[in-house]
Computed example of a mutant assay.
Amino acid sequence: MIFHPLPLAGAFLIEPEPIRDQRGFFARTVCRKEFAEHGLNAEFVQQSLSWNEQQGTLRGMHYQVQERKEAKLVRVAAGSIYDVLLDLRDQESTYLQWYSVELSAINRMHIYIPPGVAHGFLTLSDHCEVIYQMTAFYDPTAARGVRWDDPVFGIEWPQAVDLLMSAQDKSWPLWVRES
C-alpha cells in the first residue's frame, strides 16, 4: 500500500499496490503493521455498506463525539463519489478546512479519516456502493452532523441543486462549536 498524506492532519489517501498476473491482481487494503507505521488505527470494530441508487445523492456531513470519536476507512466498490472530509478538531491548524477527492471502483483508492473529522459524499454516478470500516461502534447519542452547505466551511460541491438527501442531513444546524 502507498500512503499519501492529505492536507488534513492524520488523513491519508491509500493506494493499493496490485500484484498482477494472468488472472488479474491481488492487493492488500489493510495491514495493521503498515497502518501503525503511519500512526493510523486499524482496529476496525464495525463495517458498513452504503448503497446509493442515483447520481446526485448526498450523504453527510457526519461524525461522532466524545469517547465515540471514530476513524473511518472508506472505499467505493461500485460507481464513483466526490468524497469530502471536514476538520472539526479545534486543536489542529486545519480546523474548519475541508478536503475532497474522487473515489471510484476504477481507481480503488481508500481514504482514511481520523477521529474528529466529519465525512460526507456526493454520488457521481448511479448505483454507487460505498464501504466503511470504523474504529468505534455507532452510537446514536454521539452521532452528529453539520450542514453540507454551511457558509462557514465553504465546501465546493460539483453539484448543488436537485440533490437527493435524507431529512436528517437536510436539517443539520449551521455550525456551532461544541464545548
Rank of each mutant, 00 (worst) to 15 (best):
M1C: 04
M1F: 02
I2T: 07
H4D: 06
H4W: 08
H4N: 06
P7F: 00
G10P: 00
A11F: 04
A11Y: 02
L13I: 09
P16K: 10
D21A: 03
R23D: 08
F25E: 08
F25K: 09
F25Y: 15
F25W: 15
F25H: 10
A27F: 15
R28E: 03
T29C: 13
T29E: 12
V30D: 04
V30A: 08
R32N: 10
R32I: 04
K33W: 07
K33I: 06
E34S: 13
E37T: 07
N41S: 09
L49K: 09
L49C: 11
L49W: 07
L49M: 11
S50I: 07
E53M: 08
Q54L: 11
Q54M: 10
Q54V: 14
T57G: 03
R59E: 09
R59W: 05
G60C: 11
H62D: 00
Q64L: 05
Q64G: 02
V65Q: 01
Q66A: 14
E67M: 07
E70R: 01
A71G: 01
K72M: 03
L73N: 00
V74W: 07
D83C: 10
R89N: 12
D90E: 13
Q91F: 15
E92T: 11
E92M: 12
S93P: 08
T94Y: 11
T94S: 14
T94W: 07
Y95N: 05
W98E: 08
Y99K: 03
I106K: 15
N107F: 11
R108F: 10
R108Y: 05
H110C: 14
I111T: 03
Y112E: 04
A118Y: 06
H119R: 09
H119T: 01
H119K: 06
F121D: 00
F121C: 01
T123I: 13
L124N: 01
L124H: 06
S125A: 14
D126C: 03
H127W: 13
C128N: 08
V130N: 05
V130R: 02
M134P: 01
M134L: 11
P140F: 09
T141E: 14
R144P: 05
V146E: 00
D149E: 14
D149C: 13
F153P: 01
I155D: 02
E156W: 10
E156V: 14
P158N: 04
Q159W: 03
Q159T: 07
A160K: 10
D162N: 15
L163C: 05
L164I: 14
L164K: 12
M165C: 11
S166V: 13
S166L: 09
A167D: 15
A167F: 12
K170W: 11
L174Q: 07
L174V: 06
W175C: 03
V176W: 06
R177A: 15
